[in-house]
């Protein structure tokens, strides 16, 4: 009991363990100065992340520092940065874990810089959009919007793509990719892994449509399995796995060695569920449907 107390106090200690230098990339589009690095001294407590360090700088040393973050728990994918030679999430990187006295924080490479540590991800999202990352069904009455009923999918079928659905669109993978380092139009690991994710979803019938978008020079053929995207992915999505499987999926399907997956049927019966007493109705839609 006493032991446990002692441990608790040492884990949650507020004491400053050491001081590190944050070497931070600075750039502002309207001060006319070229990009530069600026040093800040940051006292480090146990449990402090790089994002916490940036908060410290902004709160105490320099309020002009810009960076992007939201959830501070590796869920939103906003805080991707190039930290001590690897693309990482600032909120998922412990300062002490880096075992360095100087923490170099730069914006994610392979994206344009908007300001300081803020990369422009619009191309990245455009590439995602371009592979039709949504369920495509052929029959009119099964159109997903508005939903009529659920599709029946087994847990095994779910696991074939589930891992890729964990992607938070943080953009680290493209920052690590050697092809993206020179190739502006290559779709990149995230979009391609998402294409595989929807191609492999039994509820989806869009394979043929996506095939046209993928069988272009900027498709998965630009990937040579350096694997860096998977190494930096903070969510274990393993986009490189998705891209290689996508190549196999396309080629083996074209060669007739792989049959298209079976299509999840629409559940015929509405599940008999009664509203439990005391639970209010949902409020009316605020957005009108045409």
């Amino acid at each position: 009991m006493a032991d446990q107390k002692e441990q608790e106090t040492s884990v949650f200690t507020e004491e400053v363990i050491k001081e590190v230098i944050f070497r931070v990339h600075r750039f502002s589009p309207d001060d006319g100065k070229p990009p530069r690095m600026q040093d800040y001294k940051v006292p480090v407590k146990r449990g402090m992340t790089v994002l916490d360090g940036l908060h410290y700088i902004r709160d105490n040393l320099d309020s002009t520092l810009s960076y992007r973050f939201s959830c501070r728990m590796a869920i939103c994918g906003s805080c991707g940065m190039f930290i001590n030679n690897l693309p990482r999430l600032a909120c998922k990187t412990q300062i002490l874990e880096l075992e360095a006295d100087t923490i170099e924080v730069k914006p994610l490479p392979n994206y344009e810089v908007i300001k300081d540590l803020v990369p422009d991800l619009s191309d990245f999202f455009e590439k995602h959009r371009s592979v039709m990352p949504y369920l495509i069904r052929e029959e009119e009455e099964e159109k997903i919007d508005p939903p009529t009923n659920e599709f029946l999918q087994t847990p095994d079928e779910l696991e074939r793509f589930l891992q890729f659905a964990y992607c938070t669109k943080c953009g680290l993978c493209l920052a690590g990719c050697p092809t993206v380092a020179t190739d502006k139009v290559f779709l990149g690991p995230m979009a391609l892994a998402q294409a595989f994710r929807y191609n492999s979803d039994t509820r989806d019938q869009g394979f043929e449509k996506r095939l046209e978008l993928l069988c272009v020079p900027e498709g998965p053929w630009r990937c040579h399995f350096a694997g860096s995207c998977s190494e930096v992915c903070p969510k274990g999505v393993d986009p490189a796995l998705g891209v290689q499987l996508l190549k196999g999926q396309i080629v083996f399907t074209k060669l007739g060695l792989k049959k298209p997956h079976k299509i999840a049927p629409l559940a015929t019966e509405k599940p008999e569920a009664k509203r439990r007493p005391g639970i209010p109705e949902a409020p009316p839609r605020t957005v009108k449907k045409e």
Partner: peptide, 9 residues
């Protein structure tokens, strides 16, 4: 549609 053919070749 040409790319996968070139790649497998």
């Amino acid at each position: 549609m040409r790319e996968p053919t070139l790649w497998i070749l």
